[in-house]
Amino acid sequence: MIREFGPDEIAYLVFAARWTILLTAASLVFGSIIGLALAILRIMPFRPANLLALAYVNLIQGTPLLGQLFVFFFGLSILGLDVGAWPAAVTAFSLYAGAFLAEIWRGSLQSVPKTQWEASASLALTYVQRLRYVIVPQALRISLPPTVGFVVQLVKNTSLAALIGFVELTRAGQIINAATYAPLKVYLTVAAIYFVICFSLSMASQRLERKLHVAR
């Protein structure tokens, strides 16, 4: 029997969006740790570290996210780990987010004027202290709008997790579509839910950009 696409189905989709948000949040947490480490590796005055981080970033940015997702989905099981779609998706999205956040944050760190480095060095601060008290606080405000902008990308890209069978918003749409056979209504609803999430983030990013830009 074919089900109608009604309020229950819409509610199911809206609730499925929590997995999209959860996946984004988890990837963002791990991705930030990776991204911060990489950004610092990229700017520290030690050539091999720069090159290593650069190679990582280029590898991730030069291959499709879908491919990374499949490699981790099948690769983790080879390592003898539990083969759920959730750990594979979180791993792949975290490594992906790490590479992009690293580039955003490297740019922000490097946009802090060189004189700030010199001034803090002449105050006899160590390298870590210089980063911690002088450079990072200034870079943070520069990096905030593009970081929020990247979160929009991440939310959208978590839809790819549907293709390894992780039930988030898009996969929920496929499931509902299989039951109701109303693809246009189902996917337009799915798109609308993504739009609400992403558009509010985009707006926030633009507002931050205006606010922080004026303050400078």
Partner: peptide, 9 residues
């Protein structure tokens, strides 16, 4: 503000 995958669907 919507994913490519959903647009394709």
């Amino acid at each position: 503000n919507t994913p490519l995958l959903v647009q394709l669907f």
